[in-house]
Amino acid sequence: MKTFVEWIKNALLEVQEYLRLVSQVGRALVSRPFYGRDVVQQLDLIGVGSLTVVLLTGLFTGMVLALQSGMTLDQFGARSIVGRLVSATMVKELGPVLTALMVTGRVGSGIAAELGSMVVTDQIAALRALGTDPIRKLVLPRVIAGTVMVPVLTVVSNGVGMLGGMIISVTQLRVAASIYWSNVVDGLYMADIWMGLIKPVVLGFALVSIGCHVGLRTKGGTQGVGRATTNAVVTGSVAVLVLDFLITKLLISVLY
């Protein structure tokens, strides 16, 4: 019982500290100094650096989606509308979630490991000693980059996913490319586009801020850095899935 109470207390403490970090990021966003060069550097590291993994994920997801849905649609003689299914699924759900999960694995873990190493080697303390606020210098640029680049990567992933779906539709399902693309456009409504753009903004912010929070709370030397990296991926991934559900529910009630 005592262990359970301790666990609850620790969980609440983590949530409190996370919210405190988020509020500090908010304050840093609207006050000086602002480290613009670090923002550009992080946009490159998070955005361009994640492009390969996101392209591959999007491509193969679109391809497998076309394959699987083609088989199911065949049962109803509706193979020609496979494009509608691929586009709606990619834009509304799989594009944002899979991109966020891939970025969590690549970027969230990297941020936690980098900041965690800086904590255990006193580099964060050295930053503060040199008169630099680590939130402004390290956290804010990463959060901005994550919030901006995850939606961009999601759009790229969606596009490549639809392209992958087309390749399978044409080569395996024998659906003409023109019919496929016509269905892709028909299957999308403005509400879907909004959902596909709003979700990754929230997910990008969450996964990067969680990586920063876990990294800055690292304790216990190099072993602690390993733990922090694992925690960042696990917590970030779970947060992505939970937030995806909550945002979907909210947006359905607002947009549709």
Binding site: S117, M118, T121, D122, Q123, A125, A126, L127, R128, A129, L130, G131, T132, D133
Partner: peptide
Amino acid sequence: ADLMAVRSQVGMIFQDGALFD
């Protein structure tokens, strides 16, 4: 936030240097 001004007048050498990698 105010401590930054004080810290700017103090230099600290950490145990292992704490140089930025």
